[in-house]
Design a binder for these strands. Structure first.
Lengths: 128, 128, 128, 128
DNA sequence: GTGGTCTAGACCACT
DNA sequence: GTGGTCTAGACCACC
């Protein structure tokens, strides 16, 4: 399904969170689709089940998925109330990062091109 | 001078690195300007001097400042050789963040506006 | 495992960095091999764990090893992107050192012989 | 006469030692030639006289210059007794550095070329 | 048990 | 007085 970089400085559970977010954002995983069970995914990735569970819990906290006892975890619909708070954080980070990129020599046009590229692939439906 | 969140999951020294980078990028701290001494800043922020030094060392590694033994720490000039490696990291982060922003409901035009705004203030000379 | 000179002007953590680099370069420590844990090595060398960690952190910055939170520190594979910057430094030092060696009476042929010797043992696989 | 990098991590007095060694090695400063006085050089370089004196003392210890009370400091002749000890140190450093250069991707032929280049300019008489 | 962060306090080298 | 190194000892996050 996807690869983990076991050598990365970033904790495995965070990598999982990011990858799963990405799959949700790109609509590879669609609303109300069931995620793989903790045990199955743990076996597939040869990772400790606790690590998977921690990732799922984090995704639930951030509003990306919801869990039903005994049934599994599912992709959530985007809720706008939660969004705004998340969005503000992202926007802040974004502003800092853009300033840093410009400082390090990236041109504004290069930046615009990146925005365009990602926006297009998002509008086309995500996964490509 | 600035605030630290001692409760944050993000290490204090990393918060410091980010804040100081920001001040340098926005040219609040200008090239060859002296940073507050390790001890002085430690006292101001009621943080251990070692923590400050760890932040300064990190900034030095990233090429933002240089430190002289008996004299102090100073803002560095941008060296283009160091740029590329740093820039690649920033670019990667940026792409993920932009995708997330779009997913969370930010419009592409809003994104473009942010780029424009930051680019302009950077060209004007930074701090405003 | 190896000796430290606690009286030397060279900081302990730098001595450690150099020794460990040497072991990695000579393939005594091989790719993905686990280094001794911070605490264990600290006890063996009767040195403070923080000092060991500083060395490990430095090696990580230079790309020689990678560290995982709950697992340990491991020898990294050579990444060519990081090479150039590091190489330039080494090359500069090398030029000064060669000039000094010639001045102190070493002959050019002797120098060539050293290069040959080290190159051969490197190609044979390192440790002999 | 020469430039100091006041921003370098390397202490100023060490830079001075290296530069002066270089001038002696390249025979820009010839045997028994008088070095500039501590005060004069300090003024020229806008550096504290103590720093100059420390550099001269270090050069004297390493056998590169000799000092005569009331007269000044002068370039020494190469003494073989002191050389061998110095040479061993240099040779050791050289071996490590060559191994590192090879490890980081430099080719043996590139190394040979460097040796050749420096050797030639040394035989031509040094200063170019 | 592993790496990582932080504190308190000492000492050294450099200017 | 400045940055830099080191120790001793505590606590946290991850696996």
């Amino acid at each position: 399904m996807f690869e983990l970089d076991l050598r990365s400085r970033k904790p495995i559970y965070e990598q999982l969170v990011d990858k799963l977010k990405e799959l949700i954002i790109n609509e590879v995983l669609q609303v109300d689709e069931k995620l793989p069970s903790v045990r199955v995914l743990a076996q597939q990735l040869t990772v400790n089940p606790n690590t998977i569970q921690k990732a799922y819990r984090e995704l639930e906290n951030q509003g990306y998925i919801y869990s039903l006892k005994g049934k599994g975890s599912f992709v959530n619909v985007l809720e706008f109330t939660e969004t705004s708070e998340e969005l503000m954080k992202v926007k802040e980070q974004l502003e800092k990062l853009i300033a840093e990129a410009l400082f390090l020599g990236m041109s504004a046009s290069e930046l615009r091109a990146i925005v365009e590229k990602i926006d297009e692939s998002a509008n086309r439906g995500g996964s490509n």
